[in-house]
Write a protein that binds this DNA or RNA. Structure first.
Length: 605
RNA sequence: GGUCCGGUAGCUCAGCUGGAUAGAGCAACAGCCUUCUAAGCUGUGGGUCUCGGGUUCGAAUCCCGACCGGAUCACCA
């Protein structure tokens, strides 16, 4: 089906040809939605043609408008304001569009140009999306929340854009930071477990990580008091030495250390699982750094053998990236241990073994842009087809009113606490709405509060352009009114309420009926037709925010329509049928758009 | 210092492939529920789009230069 834009573009080119005998380029055809203060639905900007025509802009607009109106039945009338030609599209066209949307069960979903039919089945190119990637020494915080929500949403959006998406996670489960919490637990834990304390496993481990830091600082202070300088004190503090010793034992597969490590990590995973479940995110395949870092080492060794990398006198291994305008990059330390980059190479290797990856996407904060620039070059050199074109979906930091979150200063916003608080707030607010929520069970009420609270949180985070830093003020609660998730959920719930009451009513009265549309109805249909391009743009630009904006605009249009025009009390059966069809499809699209954001819709609220 | 990103209403953010008088929400104020859910709708006030040049019929948007803020440039991750 030709979109309206395409049809108008062809018409405009034909008009310019017929009137001025000039072949216009597609790039000269500039279309925009007509501003509400003017009559019309779509506007052609005619300035590009005024030189060719050697006439005043308004006259050119009028001439083209006259020609198009005569030639094309979908244009009902036009008006020209300066160089702007405002075109009104016929009501029949819009009704037709609405019926098309209604008939399309996959409205807003596409195939890729390189999707192929294989044995009667559509096979899509494969995109792997890595997100979350937590350390196992502390619970998830607000920064992770943004990461997880963006990662999950972008996976959904790319799926709608015709990719087969594999969601993946790389868990950073080894290293000195893990040893720190293990050591603190051994020394000060008295055998505390999640069961014995009732604490969530990840929080319990996080507490010991903090405890380590506290005791370590104490030791540093003592050493400095006895005359050592700060550098020496930090290096020689017994706790740090012990942690390093523990890491060596871990690398040497010391059974005792490994057993403790496995036990404590399992507590953390149980905690993470709970947080992920609550957040509503999931993964198709999880990788663990403890399994991939050795793979990375051997890849680096191979690169060394093939001359891609070189070894320095102290034994460390480096990649020379000066030809790419970058520096030299360390890949293996002089003691042979691996760094972050090494591990990422190993992970890529395993992933590539496991899946036919066409595109690899890393959802990681913008502080790591340099890292991914380097990784892209290295993977390319090592022969990974997706290396060169890998996407670092780089998003901005979440900042608090006084700057970044700092765990040492206790300003970290915990993910579990935050979600719980949002759900409580939603529950509190819904208590004032008893009239609309009469007769529902406690369980249903909890479920509504959960959807609404999380909806508010998710929308709040996703509506901001991912590239930008965003501000979160813990002192102010996240809104439930205005441009928010609950606003859109509310719009949906209202529609569901109407549809429940209209159950059994047919929309067939619409057939063949020539009815005239109210401007609010027309605006709604036009907005619905914009959904596919919103999905496409969100995919192209990796921006869930675009879908937030779209869903908000659609909800606004509907609420305005709903306020002015009655659906159930409309006496004209054809009009009533149209409005029901409209409401039904607005709900469908709202639900679809919010689904791509990972936000659930309540049937009532 | 090099590189990258940002600067739009009191606050949080849209708009940025150039188009009409720059938009929302929050906060403030004023209205609208015997009528499909008022988490809604309508209205009022609020702007040197950081600044200065340039390109253009037309610049918040593109180019150049300042200024301010952030990130990064580790044998950290």
């Amino acid at each position: 089906m030709n979109s309206l834009e395409q049809q108008i573009t062809e018409l405009a080119k034909a008009a310019v040809k017929a009137l001025y005998n000039v072949d216009a380029e597609d790039s000269q055809i500039s279309l925009q939605k007509t501003r509400p203060e003017f009559e019309g639905n779509i506007t052609l900007v005619v300035f590009p043609f005024v030189k060719l025509a050697r006439k005043a802009p308004a006259q050119v607009a009028a001439e083209i408008g006259e020609w198009m109106t005569k030639e094309a039945h979908i244009i009902s009338k036009y008006n020209a304001v300066q160089g702007f030609l405002n075109l009104s599209i016929s009501d029949a066209f819009w009704v037709d569009q609405l019926q098309g949307i209604d008939a399309d069960d996959h409205y807003g979903r596409f195939d890729r140009p390189n999707s192929q039919m294989v044995n009667d089945q559509m096979v899509h190119p494969l995109m792997m999306v890595e997100y979350s990637s937590p350390n196992t020494n502390k619970p998830l915080h607000l920064g992770h929340v943004r990461n997880n929500l963006l990662g999950y949403s972008i996976a959904k959006i790319q799926e709608a854009n015709g990719w087969k998406v594999v969601k993946t996670n790389i868990v950073n489960d080894r290293g000195i930071h893990i040893c720190k919490s293990m050591l603190a637990w051994l020394k000060f834990g008295n055998g505390e477990t999640p069961e014995s304390s009732g604490k969530k496993g990840d929080h319990l481990i996080g507490d010991y990580y903090v405890r380590f830091d506290k005791e370590y600082k104490k030791q540093i202070a003592e050493l400095m008091a006895s005359g050592k300088d700060e550098e020496t004190a930090k290096r020689e503090a017994p706790l740090m030495l012990e942690a390093q010793e523990m890491l060596r034992k871990w690398e040497a597969n010391d059974p005792e250390v490994r057993e403790l490590w496995a036990k404590m990590n399992s507590w953390v995973y149980a905690g993470f699982d709970e947080t992920y479940r609550k957040m509503g995110v999931s993964f198709d395949k999880i990788y663990y750094e403890s399994n991939t870092y050795l793979e990375g080492k051997s890849e680096v060794e191979k690169g060394l053998a093939s001359g891609q990398f070189y070894r320095r006198e102290d034994g460390s291994v480096w990649a020379d990236l000066t030809k790419d305008g970058l520096d030299e990059k360390l890949l293996l330390r002089s003691d042979g241990t691996s760094v972050y980059m090494t591990q990422d190479i190993g992970t890529a290797k395993l992933r590539f073994q496991d899946y036919p990856i066409d595109k690899m996407v890393y959802v990681v904060g913008n502080e790591q842009e340099y890292h991914f620039k380097v990784l892209s070059i290295l993977l390319d050199r090592l022969g990974f087809p997706f290396g060169k074109e890998l996407v670092h979906f780089s998003y901005g930091m979440v900042e608090l009113p006084n700057g970044k979150m700092k765990s040492r200063e206790g300003t970290v916003v915990d993910a579990d606490d935050l979600m719980e608080k949002m759900i409580e707030d939603a529950r509190e607010i819904s208590k004032d709405k008893v009239n609309t929520l009469q007769g529902i069970t406690e369980e249903e009420a909890n479920e509504i509060a959960r959807k609404v609270g999380l909806g508010a949180l998710k929308y709040f985070i996703l509506k901001v352009d991912p590239r930008k830093n965003m501000l979160f003020n813990p002192a102010e609660s996240i809104d439930f009114n205005g441009n928010t998730g609950p606003f859109i959920q509310y719009t949906y719930a209202r529609i569901q309420s109407v549809l429940r009451k209209a159950e059994g009513e047919s929309t067939s009265a619409l057939k063949g009926e020539a009815l005239s549309l109210d401007p609010k109805e027309l605006a709604l249909i036009q907005r619905l037709t914009e959904y596919p391009s919103a999905v496409r743009t969100a995919g192209d630009e990796f921006s869930p925010a675009i879908l937030c904006n779209y869903a908000y605009a659609l909800a606004c249009d509907f609420n305005s329509f709903y306020h002015d025009l009655s659906i159930l009390n409309e006496p004209d059966p054809a009009k009533k049928a149209l409005r029901l069809l409209l409401a039904k499809n607005v709900a469908k699209v709202l639900c679809s758009a919010m689904g791509l954001l990972g936000i659930e819709m309540p049937e009532r609220m």
